[in-house]
């Protein structure tokens, strides 16, 4: 089977003009993600893990190397040089990026956030509503929170809301950016259960974590990063 994502010698260097410094965030990163796999990257903070994910999502521009993603709409595409509008299409319908930080407007209710997201996947209002409620239940967001603005949510609740909003569109590829950082143990277990569930449903995932225990037995492949390179 063709790989869903192939990184070849990805290198990212930040040029900071104000500080007159260059930071080499990651060098010569090469790996593959097969459809249905869960690939994990671990490493200390500052080792360049997030940079890899952000390059794949095009939040960061790669300095050199290639990232080939096998898109449903376009076939294999080179993400580093893909037209902006095609990248936006892929972000909207194919790849989801999930971190524990809310990336939505603070003045929308939790339910509305998921419904809005569902607009990309369902045509009828009733279907959008139904899909959103199913997701909120699925990710165990208590019903009394549905009509609350999520900036009052706990870290774990925000994370689960983020996942619910992303998953309601059924993305084929999930990027998880330290989904367990700053969560207590009980919440971590919940997140782990979620990931196991998504995996059993066939979602391809690439996740980064700084704590190794959490990853145990979950990943199909595991890479450890130190100072910008795999070891």
């Amino acid at each position: 089977m063709a790989a869903l994502l192939t990184l070849d010698k990805l290198t990212k260097t930040f040029h900071l003009y104000e500080a007159e410094q260059t930071i080499e965030a990651c060098q010569n990163i090469s790996f593959e993600v097969q459809p249905g796999e869960f690939v994990g990257i671990t490493g200390k903070s500052g080792s360049g893990k997030s940079t890899i994910l952000k390059c794949i999502y095009r939040t960061n521009l790669a300095s050199s190397g290639s990232i080939v993603y096998d898109s449903a709409a376009f076939g294999p595409v080179e993400i580093t040089t893909l037209e902006e509008r095609k990248m936006l299409h892929i972000r909207r319908y194919e790849i989801a990026y999930i971190s524990q930080f809310l990336s939505v407007l603070p003045r929308q209710s939790a339910k509305q956030i998921v419904v809005d997201s569902a607009k990309d996947a369902y045509e009828e209002k009733s279907e959008q509503e139904e899909a959103a409620i199913e997701m909120l239940k699925h990710f165990e967001i208590a019903e009394h929170l549905w009509n609350v603005f999520p900036n009052t949510f706990s870290g774990g609740e925000k994370l689960r809301l983020n996942i619910a909003a992303a998953m309601v569109k059924h993305p084929r590829f999930l990027l998880l950016d330290e989904p367990t950082a700053s969560l207590d143990n009980a919440s971590k277990v919940k997140v782990r259960e979620l990931i196991e569930k998504l995996k059993s449903e066939g979602t391809t995932m690439l996740g980064i974590f700084h704590d190794l225990e959490f990853m145990e037995g979950l990943c199909d492949k595991e890479f450890n990063m130190q100072k910008g390179s795999f070891v």
């Binding site: 930040f14 040029h15 900071l16 003009y17 104000e18 952000k54 095009r58 939040t59 960061n60 521009l61 902006e84 509008r85 990248m87 936006l88």
Partner: peptide, 30 residues
Amino acid sequence: RTYVMLDGKVVESGLTDQILEDPQHPYTQQ
């Protein structure tokens, strides 16, 4: 999508979150 202008010229353009998180031009960084 966003264009960044300086002194009458477009110095950088790209996806908005990329411009904000990984600005390439010295002025955009500032």
